[in-house]
């Protein structure tokens, strides 16, 4: 099931929270993750509704090399720290129901 509602709410309220000029740009970034992490997918892991701090620390860890993985270390290095933080906010807000 696609959590469309939760995601729409999150994408609309994020702008102010993450300090991003355009919430639609964050929505677009998150969509780039959804190819492998569609809402409620069991593997690798669902991202919606996870605690923000956990998401941010994993993403930072992949990016700085302290956390290992198969594809995430490379993927995280392709996004800026600001973008990863905005994504952590986004997915933490997009509560899977």
């Amino acid at each position: 099931m696609y959590r469309a509602i939760a995601i729409v709410i999150a994408s609309c309220t994020l702008g102010a929270m993450a300090g991003h000029a355009n919430p639609l740009d964050v929505r677009a970034l998150a969509a780039s993750c959804a190819s492998c992490h569609p809402p409620a997918a069991s593997l690798p892991v669902p991202l919606e509704g996870q605690p923000r701090e956990m998401l941010a620390s994993r993403l930072h860890g992949f990016r700085d090399g302290s956390l290992h993985g198969t594809v995430m270390p490379q993927i995280a290095k392709g996004y800026t720290i600001d973008e990863l933080d905005a994504l952590a906010d986004y997915f933490a807000q997009a509560r899977a129901r």
Partner: peptide, 14 residues
């Protein structure tokens, strides 16, 4: 885009 749009969307969605 401003927070205004955001608020309006959230309301319409709910």
């Amino acid at each position: 885009m401003s927070a205004d749009v955001g608020r309006r969307c959230a309301l319409r969605t709910i």
